[in-house]
């Protein structure tokens, strides 16, 4: 793996130490863990009483109540679970656009979120899109041990879904990190990601070159994924139209997110470290 990416993972891990993943209530489920779930479990935290039903663990019958009222009553304790974070990284070539910090920012952001998830007693899985969704090696460990984090796919997320859909954990928190720059319906993608998830966060990571068009002059734009080219003379009008297109794209994703109950934010890769407040504002992170 590229040393710069490795360094970015380390940096993200360091940054993530200051944050914890803000796990929503719906996500309080999962494997038995150390975090209180929203259902009854086997923790020592008392939750409620209810009448005994066939099959209940006899160990939780409150014998004192039975003695006083001759009724079998079961003590219910809060479930202790381990929430889960599914981190979905866009592995397409556009996330490693030349002359931008998108790849490093993606790596750093992923490491930060993973560390924040660990701080929130969450497990994690890191999915990288490509020829289907693949998990990163060692993705359950600390981020600095991840491997094969590369952006060399020419597939969009939708295409990756078609090839091999990820096996997200139900009621987990899912975070998509992508530039979202592909044609198609955002709603379809969002529904696929949102299905079975306790929460879905969409982080649009753009390079500065994505946000700001090039200077005036003739430009032959080459799509880094498809290799298609287009020639355009960039002037103020074109720049304005470009900004309009970007805003329109972002608006369509925002509309999709609103329909799916998803929160979305946009981060400029080159200003990644200064944009962590955005993650707090969408209630993804909270100071640890």
């Amino acid at each position: 793996m590229d040393p710069a990416i490795r360094q970015a993972l380390c940096d993200g891990e360091r940054l993530g130490g200051r944050y914890a993943l803000q796990v929503p209530q719906m996500a309080a489920s999962g494997w038995t863990g150390s975090r209180s779930g929203r259902r009854t479990g086997s923790s020592i935290d008392f939750q409620d009483y209810r009448e005994y039903q066939l099959g209940d663990d006899l160990r939780f019958i409150d014998w004192g109540i039975y003695a006083r009222s001759d009724r079998l009553t079961v003590k219910l304790f809060r479930e202790e679970v381990t929430p889960h974070l599914d981190l979905i990284l866009d592995g397409s070539l556009s996330m490693n656009l030349e002359n931008t910090a998108k790849a490093r920012a993606t790596a750093g952001l992923a490491a930060l979120l993973a560390t924040a998830a660990a701080n929130a007693q969450c497990t994690q899985a890191v999915w990288l899109s490509g020829e289907g969704f693949q998990r990163l090696p060692n993705d359950t460990l600390v981020s600095s041990t991840w491997d094969k984090l590369t952006w060399d796919s020419r597939r969009t997320l939708d295409q990756s879904f078609e090839i091999l859909a990820p096996k997200f954990r139900r009621l987990g928190v899912r975070v998509l990190v992508s530039d979202l720059l592909w044609p198609g319906s955002p709603l379809q993608t969002l529904r696929r990601l949102r299905d079975g998830a306790a929460a879905l966060f969409v982080i649009q990571l753009l390079g500065r070159d994505d946000v700001n068009p090039p200077d005036h002059g003739n430009l032959r734009a080459v799509d880094c994924e498809t290799g298609e080219e287009t020639e355009v003379y960039v002037d103020a009008t074109v720049a304005k139209q470009y900004a309009g297109n970007l805003a329109q794209l972002q608006q369509s994703w925002a509309d999709g997110c609103r329909q799916c109950g998803t929160r979305m934010t946009t981060i400029v890769a080159e200003a990644f470290e200064n944009s962590l407040g955005e993650l707090e504002s969408i209630q993804l992170l909270t100071p640890a």
């Binding site: 044609p183 753009l206 994505d210 003739n218 032959r220 994924e225 498809t226 355009v232 297109n245 794209l249």
Partner: peptide
């Protein structure tokens, strides 16, 4: 000057207006 500068972009989605 008007030779087209070749430049990679993330996607041509944003350049589809012209």
């Amino acid at each position: 000057r008007n030779r087209f500068r070749r430049r990679q972009v993330s996607s041509l989605v944003l350049w589809s207006f012209h």
